[in-house]
Amino acid sequence: MNQFSTATSTSYDINELNRLRAARQAENHELEAEVASLSSLARVDLEARLRLGLVPAERLLYVDVNQPLPAKQTLPTRFLPPEANEVPALQEPLWKRLLHVLPFF
């Protein structure tokens, strides 16, 4: 009886946790979409015009600045392109590396 009760309770907990996980995943997707919306060009343009009072440039002046570029705007990780060195190269097992020491390998 006790075991049955524990099993039922655990099953309920698992279902609850699954539901919670799904909710958090959904929230995560919502937040990703919100981050994307907040960094949309239309919003940036609107903020620049209305809040900061900026206007489109009438004359372009190109300035060659000897400084590094500013950091790129952060995107949700899911949308970021993979970094070239993100995935570490698979290391060969020790015995294979030892084989390479031999002159004929």
């Binding site: 959904a26 919502e30 979409a33 994307a36 899911r78 949308f79 392109p81």
Partner: peptide, 18 residues
């Protein structure tokens, strides 16, 4: 879940939410 359509810099042009 349907995949996202991104611009060349990774900005989402279409994405999916629950």
């Amino acid at each position: 879940p349907r995949g996202a359509i991104l611009d060349r810099n990774g900005y989402p042009l279409a994405t999916t939410v629950d």
